[in-house]
């Protein structure tokens, strides 16, 4: 084998590895990603039963029901439509009514969303980015003000410089 042939072979081998990896990446991207949808999207276009969805919105007030075990149902709303969600397990510490939430899972045939993962905001000032973007796009959210329909929370002029 000449040096040139050797070099060609090794380059060929590398291309095979990289190509295989690229193939893996492409198949995985087409089969195992989850799409972000708002309740309105989900009500309008019902996805297939196996399509993974990230459902984002606010936990609707008064809809959280625990049946006494680890099974929980609640509704996710974007203030226009809302979708009922069921979940088995422990909800995140910051899961609260009226707060942003992302539920990941699939939409069942009975139009009830079956979540296997529930992510709530991580600290007081955090809202899931997708939820904010979605609400913003539809004029339900303003930068610096939060949810438009939601009233201010402070009592009077806060001590100087408060807020983050």
């Amino acid at each position: 084998m000449t040096r040139k042939a050797k070099r060609l072979y090794s380059i060929g081998a590398m291309l095979v590895v990289v190509g295989a990896a690229a193939g893996l990446v492409l198949t995985a991207l087409s089969s195992s990603v989850a799409y972000f949808q708002s309740p309105t999207d989900l009500v309008k276009n019902v996805p297939g039963p196996t399509q993974r969805i990230r459902l984002g919105g606010l936990v609707e007030e008064g809809t959280v029901k625990r049946d006494g075990s680890s099974h929980v149902t609640f509704s996710v709303t974007d203030t226009v439509d809302s979708v009922p969600v069921t979940y088995t397990g422990i909800l995140p510490d910051l899961f609260r009514e009226g707060q942003g939430v992302i539920a990941e899972g699939t939409l069942g045939p009975d139009r009830v969303f079956v979540a296997d993962t529930v992510l709530a905001k991580h600290d007081e000032t955090y809202m899931p980015k997708e939820v904010v973007d979605d609400l913003k796009a539809r004029g339900l959210w303003e930068d610096g003000k939060g949810l438009v329909k939601k009233p201010e929370e402070t009592v009077s002029a806060a001590p100087v410089g408060a807020g983050s």
Binding site: A28, L29, S31, S32, V33, A34, Y35, F36, R54, E104, E130, D133
Partner: peptide
């Protein structure tokens, strides 16, 4: 479009 790539990927 908004997607999330998680553990399965």
């Amino acid at each position: 479009e908004k997607i999330s790539v998680g553990a399965p990927f």
